[in-house]
């Protein structure tokens, strides 16, 4: 197990290194890198000074080395807008995004999994057809537009939920989150549901496909021949088998939740990472954009690693292979 994790960790470092190369060359390809480091309104002699200060007059490999060592020591430059280190800003905003994404994930799984399994157990039933129709709608509906419609219905017309912001937070078990106050939950409800929507359809489809496949297996027939109840078969034999692919996909999709949070956060003015980066793009605050990019790459690598580990824990066949190597 340890060797398995170590090997995958090494692979991630290699990919991260390659990605830093790509990011670096992308910055250098698209316009003058000085633009990344100074305010666009700077005077020419100031630009020259910065160019020298940052060693941009030196050969490319020297520049890359500096970029790399800077990035490794957590220095990705200061935000033009806020005048503070990009990484610090991101670290401040990250908890809000994480909270949003986790809530969305919980909603997606608790709604999508039972519906998908139900549709898979009775594939020809009316209920299953209805559920699958909903999932096509769920995949096609533009999330941001649905967010606006939710605001119209629940805030403007019904007046139940607040339009924007994060609301009160409270500390519980050392975690500060708006999940622990009523006001916070009210603020969380719409953005989290909105973000979850796309994933509900996905979890549903995965669960249905998995259920169809597993229920046709011999071991399910043998389990029935043992006289097990349907409930027991679903819980002990169906679930563990369909959870393997679902956990993998949902885990990888957790990254896309963070990515899609940019949209949701913009609609509901949620003070998270996504809103920060969208504002940065609009304001040409490039250090933040670069920092966000590297952060996302790192996040995806970590997620892939975590998913592989969970996968190995769930599926004994994979675990064994990992041990043997």
């Amino acid at each position: 197990m340890f060797a398995f994790v170590l090997r995958r960790g090494m692979q991630s470092v290699v990919v991260l290194f390659v990605m830093s190369l790509i990011v670096f060359s992308m910055i250098n390809l698209v316009g003058d890198p000085v633009d990344m480091l100074v305010n666009p309104e700077s005077l020419p002699d100031e630009i020259e000074r910065v160019r020298r200060d940052f060693g941009l007059d030196q050969p490319v490999y020297v520049q890359y080395w500096k970029f790399l060592t800077g990035a490794l020591s957590g220095d990705l430059g200061n935000s033009f807008v806020f005048g503070r280190p990009a990484l610090t800003l991101m670290a401040e905003r990250f908890p809000a995004t994480l909270e949003l994404a986790i809530c969305a994930l919980i909603i997606a799984v608790t709604i999508g999994l039972p519906l998908g399994v139900y549709a898979g157990l009775r594939p020809d039933g009316l209920g299953a057809r209805f559920i699958m129709g909903l999932s096509v709608l769920g995949i096609s509906i533009p999330t941001f537009w649905l967010g606006l419609m939710m605001i119209i219905v629940f805030s403007v017309i019904l007046g139940w939920l607040p339009v924007s912001g994060r609301g009160e937070t409270a500390v519980f078990l050392g975690i500060e989150s708006s999940m622990f106050t009523l006001d916070g939950l009210k603020h969380l409800a719409m953005p989290a549901t909105n973000l979850a929507l796309f994933k509900i359809a996905m979890v549903m489809r995965l669960a249905r496909a998995g259920t169809n496949e597993v229920m046709a297996q011999d071991f399910i027939r043998f389990a029935r021949a043992k006289g097990l109840s349907s409930r027991r078969i679903v819980r002990a034999h169906l679930m563990p088998n369909i959870l393997i692919p679902i956990v993998t996909v949902v885990g990888i999709e957790f990254g896309t939740l963070i990515a899609f949070a940019t949209v949701t956060e913009s609609i509901f003015a949620w003070p998270g990472l996504g809103k920060l980066v969208i504002d940065a793009i609009v304001n040409l605050d490039r250090p933040i954009v670069v920092a966000y990019l590297l952060f996302v790459v790192a996040l995806f690598l970590v997620l892939n690693l975590v998913v592989d580990i969970i996968y190995a824990v769930l599926d004994p066949r994979v675990r064994l292979q990992g041990d043997e190597e």
Binding site: Q217, D218, F219, F222, A236, H237, P240, N241, D315, P316
Partner: peptide, 10 residues
């Protein structure tokens, strides 16, 4: 088929 009669993850 004994290879498929048992649940692989239990």
């Amino acid at each position: 088929d004994p290879t498929t009669s048992l649940n692989p993850v239990q």
